[in-house]
């Protein structure tokens, strides 16, 4: 393995047991997270980006969610076969997770202080007093005004932005090596989103951690990420360094996605390029190229599973005759 990668995900397969059989929500997904870098995973809802992230920390819905194959190596350690006890140490300790909806990630019947201090009590085995002080310091680090007072508040007393800061405080409390942020700003206003992303960026360079940022917002990706992984229907269709992906997208899906967003520069009321059709349901996924499936293309060439190859240094692409523009 390469030394520079903190996390390596290799041909990960995650499935769910459903009434319609075992369905693969994540179908051989591969990507690396270099030390200190931010990797963005982008895709439409249902593309498997959250399932990929939750597979890394093994927080899949039980008993239906299962990792069927592939490898996840974190600092060289195999996470798929790690014991549950070891995973509990890793989650919150070495890997922090920031969830989308801060209200459901926090317990409404406990004070903020108790919830943050709990992380220090469990992972650092601190005394009550030390944990309380460390928590106050952590809230201050997240630029929460008057942290001593906020420690005594309940989550519902805080605004959305402040709540998300508390959730980030929980994830960063033990100064993890890797933070997984699942749509951390989707529920927030743009102004608050800008504050939170700015804060995450500066804390990241301060602490030297790596970040996996899951989002459907290409603007957020462009502004915060070093590498981008584009997922479609459970697979990675393209991944590349951010400048390369936006400057030289090679997969038809990436290109269509980039074209379809209105920007502040588009001509008002002009026709926006669209992607015809809708994403197939999990049970209807084709074995072949799934973007061809969406567009209704059905030639023998598109029925075979496209190979995922490195076409230029660091630029990976699903090679489909119809969809890849090489």
């Amino acid at each position: 393995m390469s030394v520079a990668n903190l996390l390596e995900v290799d041909r990960l397969i995650t499935s769910f047991d459903t009434e319609r059989g075992i369905l693969r929500a994540v179908d051989q997904v591969s990507f690396n997270v270099p030390i200190g870098k931010t990797v963005g995973i982008v895709g439409e809802s249902g593309c498997g980006k959250s399932v990929t992230a939750m597979s890394i920390v093994r927080l899949l819905p039980q008993p239906t969610g299962k990792i069927l194959g592939g490898e996840i190596r974190f600092k060289g350690e195999d996470l798929i076969h790690a014991s549950d006890k070891r995973m509990q140490r890793i989650r919150g300790g070495e890997i922090g997770v920031i969830f989308q909806e801060p209200m459901s990630a926090l317990n409404p019947v406990h004070r903020i202080g108790r919830q943050v201090a709990e992380v220090f009590r469990i992972h650092k085995k601190m005394s009550k007093k030390d944990a309380w002080d460390a928590s106050t310091e952590m809230l201050g680090l997240l630029r929460i005004p008057a942290p001593e007072k906020r420690m005594m508040d309940y989550p519902q007393h805080l605004s959305g932005g402040m709540r998300q800061r508390v959730v980030i405080a929980l994830a960063l409390a033990c100064r993890p090596d890797l933070v997984i942020a699942d749509e951390p700003t989707t529920a927030l206003d743009v102004t608050v989103q800008a504050q939170i992303l700015d804060l995450l960026g500066s804390l990241q360079s301060e602490m030297g951690m790596s970040l996996i940022l899951i989002t459907h917002d290409l603007g957020v990706i462009a502004e915060t990420c070093d590498e981008v992984v584009v997922m479609y229907a459970g697979r990675v269709v393209e991944s590349a360094p951010v400048d390369e992906l936006f400057g030289n997208p090679l997969h038809a899906y990436t290109q269509a996605l980039l074209r379809s967003i209105p920007t502040l520069e588009t001509v008002p009321k002009s026709v926006l390029p669209t992607i015809p059709g809708t994403v197939a349901g999990l049970a209807e996924y084709s074995h072949g190229c799934r973007f061809c499936q969406r567009l209704g293309r059905n030639s023998p060439a598109t029925r075979e599973r496209p190979k995922f190859k490195e076409v230029e240094p660091g630029h990976w692409l699903e090679i489909c005759k119809e969809c890849s523009n090489l």
């Binding site: 005004p145 743009v190 102004t191 800008a194 462009a222 502004e223 936006f246 502040l264």
Partner: peptide, 24 residues
């Protein structure tokens, strides 16, 4: 101005100065 500057731009080449608002 603050609202507009906060909109993320889907172009990594564009580096803009954001006006960060305090509070809510």
């Amino acid at each position: 101005k603050a609202l507009l500057s906060a909109v993320p731009v889907a172009d990594p080449q564009v580096k803009r100065e954001k006006i960060l608002l305090e509070g809510d």
